[in-house]
């Protein structure tokens, strides 16, 4: 009963949450392009920000010549994942960047709605929607500790805080 009460309160709270994505763009031009791309999928309720402390390197150009038909390539060198953009590629940088980041972030499309679903962590079963099935998964672990589905804040316990985070993403 307490769980139901907490859930109801949380669903009414209408809180906002932010998501940060870990990417390491190199150079001012690419950094600006990444920030512009992230701004395009941000909303006041769910801002998406850049976290440069980790993630793949994003580079404009590369040491090995590009295939002329490729806009961007992904490779792993020395254990480091790199996404390199072809300066003379068939697509404008902004378009190539969106295509690569859509894939890299696992979005269905480069839209605020798709970003909210994917980056919020609330799509627990990964089916592209945040619905009662996800809520059921969370509530099934409510009160438990460990790395569990529903531990949205990563504190290794599923509790009211996670319910509140879920509620910020769930739409009736």
């Amino acid at each position: 009963m307490r769980r139901v009460g907490a859930l109801a309160l949380a669903l009414l709270a209408g809180m906002a949450s932010a998501a940060s994505v870990k990417l390491r763009p190199q150079g001012a031009e690419l950094t600006r392009a990444v920030e512009a791309a992230l701004a395009a999928i941000s909303t006041p309720e769910t801002p998406v920000t850049l976290d440069t402390s980790g993630g793949p390197l994003l580079v404009l150009g590369g040491t090995v010549p590009f295939n002329p038909d490729v806009a961007a390539r992904t490779l792993t060198l020395g254990g480091e994942r790199r996404i390199e953009f072809n300066p003379q590629g068939p697509l404008p940088l902004a378009e190539a960047l969106r295509a690569e980041l859509t894939r890299e972030l696992g979005l269905r499309e480069w839209t605020p709605a798709a970003a909210r679903v994917r980056l919020s962590g609330a799509d627990l079963n990964g089916d592209g929607t945040i619905d009662l099935t996800d809520l059921a998964l969370l509530m099934n672990n409510y009160g438990k500790t460990g790395a569990l589905a529903g531990d949205l804040n990563g504190d290794r316990r599923v509790d009211d805080a996670d319910v509140r985070l879920f509620s910020a993403q769930y739409r009736f």
Binding site: S20, V21, T102, G106
Partner: peptide, 19 residues
């Protein structure tokens, strides 16, 4: 009340199927 938090999305993305 509006409250922002940062999700370590990259961690979650590690389990995501890529296209």
């Amino acid at each position: 009340m509006k409250r922002a938090r940062t999700l370590l999305a990259a961690l979650a993305l590690g389990a995501a199927p890529l296209l």
